[in-house]
Amino acid sequence: MKFADFICREAIRADLTADDKEGVIREMVQTLLDAGKIKPDEQESIVKAILKREELGSTGIGRGVAVPHTKHPSVDQLVGTVAISREGVDFHSLDGEKVQLLFLLISPPDRPGDHLRALENISRQLRDDTFCRFLKRSKSADDIRQLLDEADNNQFGA
């Protein structure tokens, strides 16, 4: 699975303004709503589900990266987005570091394989230090889109 298969390009943001965990999650879900990927009447339910998942253990997996996610019956295919927080937000990450780079995923409950393939892709790409560093330094959504395209074209060491 490639980024292009699950990342909504219109929802990508390089300038999150919220300064806490719930705030950035709400901001990212809003970008998916604005992009028409989720329904307005499901927005709050999706946010709550993602926050509930965070209660089970932070999705801040270290290296300044978090992957907040949830299963949700309102989506019929995996939808995701990427965003950068320049200041970083406290995500109670495993390594205690603030999170600058966020991948948010919403997946249909009956498609665990797609969710895993997305995580596999994200993690394989992020193991490449250059990709991870460039992504965090992205100045615009266009920069992020370009990096994701390059990763999809195997231009990093995944």
Partner: peptide, 10 residues
């Protein structure tokens, strides 16, 4: 990191 296990896509 968990990234290693996730990269298996198991």
């Amino acid at each position: 990191t968990p990234l290693q296990w996730l990269s298996l896509g198991a």
